[in-house]
Amino acid sequence: MTWNGYQRGEDDGPSECDGRYHSDGDMVAALSTRWYESGRQCKRMIRITSTQNGRTVEAKVVDECDSNSLAAWKALGLHVNVGEALVTWSDA
């Protein structure tokens, strides 16, 4: 998983699933192409678990990629400066 900004002016344009920008405080996530399933996962809640420390959060799928919001990284106890972190996910 990587970190991605979903606010206006950060990284890419608005989220693919809902056409909106999201605050860095929102629990949102993007799934890799395979898991995104051509948008079938849009707006569904997923459970993300850090393999590093076992912490778990729930986030709403808003885009296709392999990134999560700053809020999700913080809730998982991860530091965005590491670049990427290993996680597992499942339906919430």
Rank of each mutant, 00 (worst) to 15 (best):
G54Y: 11
L86M: 13
A30D: 05
C17E: 06
A72P: 01
M45L: 15
A72D: 12
E84P: 01
W35I: 12
H22D: 09
D63F: 01
H22R: 06
E10Q: 07
E58C: 12
M27I: 11
Q41C: 12
E64G: 10
H22L: 08
K60L: 05
N4H: 04
A92W: 12
G13Q: 04
V62D: 05
V61D: 01
A75C: 13
A72H: 03
A72Y: 01
I48E: 04
Y6N: 09
G39I: 12
G83C: 10
N53D: 02
V28M: 07
D63W: 00
A30C: 04
V62S: 01
S38K: 12
T88F: 15
N81T: 13
V87G: 02
D26G: 09
C42R: 08
Q7W: 03
G54N: 04
E58W: 02
E84W: 14
T49K: 15
L70E: 11
S15W: 00
L86C: 04
K74S: 12
R44C: 10
I48R: 02
N81S: 07
Y6P: 09
T88S: 13
I48D: 01
S38W: 13
W3A: 03
D11I: 01
D66P: 05
A59G: 05
V82I: 09
R44Q: 15
T51D: 11
G54Q: 09
D63T: 15
L70P: 03
T88V: 10
V61T: 10
S50A: 10
T2E: 02
M45R: 15
K43Q: 15
V80W: 08
I48G: 02
G9N: 07
T33F: 02
V87S: 03
S67W: 03
D26S: 12
E10P: 07
T51C: 08
C17F: 02
E64M: 10
E10R: 02
Q7H: 07
N81V: 07
D12Q: 04
D26F: 08
T51G: 04
G13L: 00
H79N: 13
S32F: 04
R55T: 05
E84T: 14
D24T: 05
L78R: 06
T88W: 13
S69W: 03
T88N: 14
R20K: 11
Q52G: 11
W3N: 01
T56S: 14
E84Q: 15
G54A: 06
A59F: 10
A59P: 04
V57E: 06
S69I: 08
D26A: 14
T51H: 14
E64N: 08
T56Q: 15
G39P: 06
S32G: 11
